[in-house]
Design a binder for these strands. Structure first.
Length: 278
DNA sequence: CGCCAGGTGCGAA
DNA sequence: TTCGCACCTGGC
């Protein structure tokens, strides 16, 4: 067991806001998460986190990175308030909300699955894939399956993916895995690109459009300047500012929030869904 | 039953 | 370049 002091994390908001899929909420209000090579259980204890795992190696650094604990959000929030003082209430209410650093391959597959799909079905398909191709882990007497890497899935067929309930996205996933395995694409190289180049690189893959690419960049590559525009953001922008066109939403947000556009959109969305009227 | 979801690719204009 | 439509699946 590990205690991380003064994490300044709002655990439940960060986990349940829709950035990640493969987690469960336990009776004691802790969260069990399947994180790359291990299963972790995290419980918030005031400003501390209590972490358990089947694998204690480098656990603290792993968790700190995953939950983005070493980024100075106070500084970022100050910058956001300088850009737009009207954000005061939202920024205050989102204190402790972080953008997670998720494993790259899993995130890309997850968001390819997310198009025209619902969260429970995305989770189910991901679990099916992990069950079939991933490594079994026992943690506190329960079975979990790690998400496989592209090598683990090299023998998979489109038909198998369809059977795992990926739907019409089966061919996109199949194609993507093959491109990773034959080195047509290199998902690690995206880390070294600027956000525009990274976006272009991702968009070359079938099944990855602007929304999906934005989610991947924000949640797996820490690009806080990139913002996914989904139906909810569109609704928010229409209701709040009467802006409907995607290009206008992009320009408006970029002009206003600059290098933190993506984070601010998450704050707004999160506030709108969870905090307002509560 | 018919409708549609935290989009995208595709063919038609 | 832009526009409209189909799309696995499952829950309502």
């Amino acid at each position: 067991m590990l205690r991380i002091k003064d994490a300044n994390l709002n655990l439940s908001d960060t986990i349940t806001c829709g950035q990640i899929f493969r987690f469960s909420i336990e009776d004691d209000n802790s969260y069990t998460i399947i994180l790359s090579d291990r299963v972790i259980n995290i419980k918030q204890d005031n400003n501390d986190l209590i972490v358990k795992s089947n694998n204690e190696d480098n656990l603290e650094s792993k968790v700190r990175y995953y939950l983005d604990l070493d980024r100075d959000y106070n500084k970022i929030n100050k910058r956001i308030l300088k850009l737009d003082p009207n954000m005061k209430k939202i920024v205050d209410d989102c204190n402790g909300f972080k953008i997670i650093n998720q494993p790259k391959f899993e995130t890309i597959i997850s968001y390819i699955l997310s198009q025209n799909n619902r969260v429970p079905q995305i989770k189910k398909a991901l679990d099916n894939i992990a069950y079939k191709y991933g490594k079994k882990i026992i943690f506190e007497d329960k079975e979990y399956y790690l998400f496989p890497n592209s090598e683990d899935m090299k023998e998979c067929s489109i038909e198998e993916l369809r059977n795992l309930k990926t739907g019409f996205r089966d061919k996109y996933i199949y194609e993507f895995i093959n491109k990773v395995n034959n080195k047509t694409i290199d998902i690690n190289s995206i880390s070294d690109m600027n956000s525009d180049d990274a976006m272009t690189y991702l968009l070359e893959n079938k099944g990855i459009g602007e929304k999906v690419a934005s989610c991947i960049l924000l949640f797996a590559y820490s690009r806080l300047d990139v913002f996914p525009i989904d139906t909810w953001v569109k609704k928010y922008m229409k209701d709040e500012y009467n802006i409907t066109n995607i290009k206008d939403i992009k320009r408006f947000t970029k002009d206003k929030y600059k290098e933190y556009s993506g984070l601010v959109i998450q704050y707004m969305f999160h506030y709108k869904r969870n905090k307002e009227n509560k």
